[in-house]
Amino acid sequence: MLIGGNYTDRIRERLENQPGLGKTIFDLGCGTGAWAMDMAADFPHCSVVGADIAPMDIGLAPSNLR
């Protein structure tokens, strides 16, 4: 809430789509996977990977999330 969302403007700039350049977002300790799902929806051109000791339910997740 302090930064006004899930990520800062600087992160948004870094993750902008640049044709020919693949980008990956890695969420270590993703818990429920809510943040990873939000990032996958906000940045569909990026590959998003969520990792946690407990498996997350990604039944309705975007295709760029694993």
Results as ranks from 00 to 15, higher is better:
R14C: 09
C30P: 00
E16Q: 15
R12K: 15
M37F: 06
M56L: 14
R10D: 15
I25P: 15
G20I: 02
E16W: 01
C46N: 01
D27K: 03
T8I: 00
A41L: 14
G22H: 06
D38C: 15
H45C: 08
G31Q: 04
S63E: 15
T32N: 14
G31D: 13
R66L: 14
A36V: 03
G33A: 06
K23N: 01
W35H: 12
S47N: 15
H45Y: 05
K23I: 02
G33V: 04
A36D: 01
C30R: 05
T8F: 01
T8K: 04
A34G: 06
M37Y: 07
A40R: 08
Y7D: 00
I11P: 02
D52W: 04
L2H: 12
G29R: 04
H45D: 08
D57E: 08
R66K: 10
D42E: 08
L65Y: 00
L65E: 02
M39F: 15
G59V: 12
S47Y: 11
A40V: 11
I3T: 07
V49D: 01
V48M: 05
A34Q: 12
A40H: 07
M1H: 11
G50I: 05
T32V: 09
L28T: 00
R10H: 13
G59S: 15
A34Y: 07
G4R: 10
G4W: 10
P55C: 09
R66E: 12
